[in-house]
């Protein structure tokens, strides 16, 4: 189970948070179709560290950028988005 240090609320259990998507996969309103398609459907899905977007859904409600290892579950950093 992850213990996520929310920059606004301090360390909280994973269950308060919801994973949204990889940080490099955000679809923007003015993206060209092929860029939007890549953001929607292509993932590096690394067996290692990736930056991700999470939301503290059951806490402060703020969006966060987590840099996290998907193999060891170690969290390197959590920043407000």
């Amino acid at each position: 189970m992850l213990l996520i240090p929310c920059p606004h609320c301090g360390p909280r259990i994973q269950e308060e948070f919801a994973y949204e998507r990889s940080a490099d996969s955000v679809v923007r309103l003015d993206d060209a179709p092929d860029v939007a398609m890549t953001a929607l459907f292509s993932r590096a899905n690394l067996r290692g560290e990736e930056a991700e977007i999470w939301v503290h859904a059951q806490g402060c409600g703020q969006w966060l950028r987590l840099t996290r290892d998907r193999m060891s579950h170690a969290i390197r950093s959590v920043e407000p988005l």
Binding site: T38, F41, S42, R43, A44, N45, L46, R47, R70
Partner: peptide, 18 residues
């Protein structure tokens, strides 16, 4: 389970998350 990792070795990105 590991498709993303193995396809990544060939430089491919897939519509898959593990």
């Amino acid at each position: 389970g590991n498709s993303g990792h193995v396809a990544g070795l060939a430089g491919l990105k897939l519509p898959i998350e593990s």
